[in-house]
Design a protein around this nucleic acid. Structure first.
Lengths: 252, 252
DNA sequence: TTTCCAATGTCTGTATACAGTCCCTGACCA
DNA sequence: TGGTCAGGGACTGTATACAGACATTGGAAA
């Protein structure tokens, strides 16, 4: 419910933004079920603000693919299948592959390469740790920064924006399925592989090997795909998948 | 104003949709210049409707990347460079390549293959014509249908939607640069090549050759890239590019 | 009992009023 | 003459009223 007290620098979170965050939570957490219509007036009662910002938030959430517009007007919570989850990851992987290739072909600034090497070193300290339990939240954060850096290296705002859209769904972001992975007996094994891919992508970019950078980045995304399959095979793992509440339940 | 006198399928185009179409035209045609702020109240005067639908239309046009949100609120017309144009085409080509690969790997229904063959035959009659002037508008329509069919063959609504977004910019759609191409002395030559790529993509999909289908589809998009370079080299050709008005003018 | 029609309630689309904020301008002071 | 502060204008964000559309439900007739 109540999030951490805002250490936000933003002056005043607009009502529209508040509505967007609150509604997104309601949907992702499953308080609003897939297929269910989201009435503006009901949300007025529920969120305690007027229709205008709620309406704006609904439009934005439709852009995020969390809602779908009904033909008769209004919106309903979108329902997803395992296939939808997999396709979202595949799309993200393809676009990130393009980003890696562009970065390699166009070349990147030395400062970015230094930043990449520093990130890789940090990730090493997390992954190579001999303790059984790794620091998941730290890995997630570093992993997110790595992906953001590769995208920045491509130097294309259009591509960055497109990837942002593809990663908007809660289960599609690069780090979404890492928590699932940690429950696997091969968890440490997989992390080692992922980190090697990180290294190889940067090496390929540095050497201007565009095709290789692209291929590795794509394959990197398929780790998420494997984690997804594991999650769908085991109900306990599925609970760790963000947005699992969005899955269309078996027909009653 | 004009009520439902027309036997149109659509009951009544909503004010929001009208505003979206009108504003898009104003932007693409250059009536609103790149970088210029788009004030809601000015558009109220200009379009003759209230702020609410105009506001909704502005949000949607920001979605289409034709507008950008200003930090202080409101929107401004986005300014593009030649590089932005090229990147948009590259992104579309990459995603269409993914669509072709998925279609090949997953297999397509026989009905879709028949439809594809019929389309290819129709395109042949346009391209193989010996007359110097080909029917550009017919080619554009058939070409658009071909691309839509490949996307449909992939069977992924998420991917379809992502491609739709990538093609939303007026210069990024598959047929946007065909008119430029027709002014080239090699026009017929290029059309022959493009049509052969169409055939090869379908053949690859039919044979489940995913990697090949993807590569050809990507290369196919690069024809648009070549046309773009030609357009930027010759001012007269540039006038044929949809959305040329969006290009950031040289700093004065 | 079933079917059709009508009435009612709820919903969205639209218009508009109000308030807070940002920017620009102009005047005054050093 | 230059800088700073105050005032005003314009714009967006938000709230709310109104009207048309859709669905659902209840009743009446066959």
């Amino acid at each position: 419910m109540t999030r951490a007290a805002a250490p936000v620098i933003e002056k005043s979170p607009s009502q529209t933004l508040k509505a967007q965050l609150l509604l997104r939570d309601l949907i992702v957490q499953g308080a609003l079920k897939p297929g269910e219509r989201v009435s503006e007036l009901q949300m007025v009662d529920r969120l305690g603000m007027s229709r205008t910002p709620i309406r704006a938030a609904l439009v934005r959430l439709e852009q995020e693919d969390l809602l779908e517009a009904l033909p008769s007007g209004g919106f309903a919570v979108k329902a997803f299948s395992e296939r939808d989850f997999a396709e979202a990851i595949e799309i993200r992987g393809t676009l990130e592959g393009l980003a890696a290739r562009l970065a390699a072909e166009r070349g990147v600034r030395p400062a970015q390469l230094r930043e990449a090497r520093a990130l890789l070193a940090e990730l090493d300290t997390v992954v190579r740790r001999e303790t059984i339990e790794i620091d998941v939240s730290l890995y997630v954060e570093l992993n997110a920064r790595f992906h953001a850096l590769v995208i920045a290296m491509a130097g294309s705002t259009a591509l960055a924006r497109q990837i942002e859209r593809a990663s908007a769904l809660p289960f599609a972001s690069p780090s979404a399925l890492v928590p699932v992975q940690t429950r696997s007996p091969e968890s440490h094994h997989i992390l080692t592989i992922a980190q090697d891919q990180h290294r190889c992508v940067i090496a390929a970019i540095e050497r201007r090997e565009g095709s290789r950078a692209e291929a590795i980045m794509r394959e990197h995304a398929r780790i998420a795909h494997r984690n997804l399959e594991r999650a769908f095979a085991d109900q306990r793992d599925l609970a760790l998948v963000p947005g699992a509440a969005l899955i269309r339940r078996a027909e009653v």
